[in-house]
Design a binder for these strands. Structure first.
Lengths: 126, 126
DNA sequence: TTCTCCGGTTTCCTTTGGTAACTAGCTTTC
DNA sequence: GAAAGCTAGTTACCAAAGGAAACCGGAGAA
């Protein structure tokens, strides 16, 4: 068995971590976990995502086997994205991140304000 | 109480998510969770991280109140980074990501190979 | 006719990420 | 005594990624 280790730069684990530790991936998986969703539904749901970034992120998630894409030959064509079984094993972990962000956003903002205030004091003293 | 929602582009939660859903932040917190660590110790431990990126990431983590920095007036100066109590509440969530990456890296690599093979078949047919 | 929707791609510009070199002072090695 | 290595970063530079906006063709609604 090969040893995988995130601390090693050449380990493929690094690439995987780079793909899943991503803001857009977290939001996309979170929406898709509620059920299959079309491209423009995702776009409207995730405020601020551009079409280009959304399609790039979906392609990467599909390539990594976390999301599946189904096109229906309707007119105009309908494309439905959903979470694969592999993606579902990741969902719980990745949702914890956005949950943490929502719960602790105030503490982080306070820390930022303290840090910036301390920095401006130093600048005034100089 | 204000409503925080990661789906809204203007919500500060987005900024927080953007900071914590980061490869380097995950690795740094993972090392620091084992105990206070100096700058160059971190650099050697996390293979492939440049000094610039490491110092930027540490500054951001410190500003967000997740990591604390202590400088000792030794010669040469020693700087020790450690996880704050707020940062510790995030650790469990963020470690789950790198754990998932190590456990599922093979499944992801297989999915990528399947995806790329299917793509090259389409290209040959055309 | 014009507007909207479908699912994207293309173009362009800005921002970020990463590499390599450099700072300055002390310690160790040759 | 000179050269190299340690400490913790910063700076200049370039490649890569991110994001806004325009555009694609075809169909349905106003």
């Amino acid at each position: 068995m090969t040893q995988y280790c995130v601390y090693s730069a050449s380990c493929p684990t690094r690439l995987v971590l780079d793909h899943i530790a991503d803001k857009w991936a977290a939001l996309i998986l979170r929406v898709l976990s509620e059920g299959p969703t079309r491209f423009n539904q995702l776009r409207r749901r995730i405020d601020g995502v551009s079409q280009k970034v959304l399609s790039q992120a979906l392609k990467r998630l599909e390539r990594d086997g976390l999301v599946s894409r189904r096109a229906f030959p309707t007119v105009p064509v309908t494309v439905e994205y959903s979470v694969t079984p592999l993606g579902q094993t990741l969902c719980a972990q990745i949702f914890a991140l956005s949950d943490w962000a929502e719960k602790n956003v105030e503490a982080v903002l306070e820390a930022q304000a303290r840090y910036d205030a301390a920095g401006s004091q130093l600048r005034e003293a100089a």
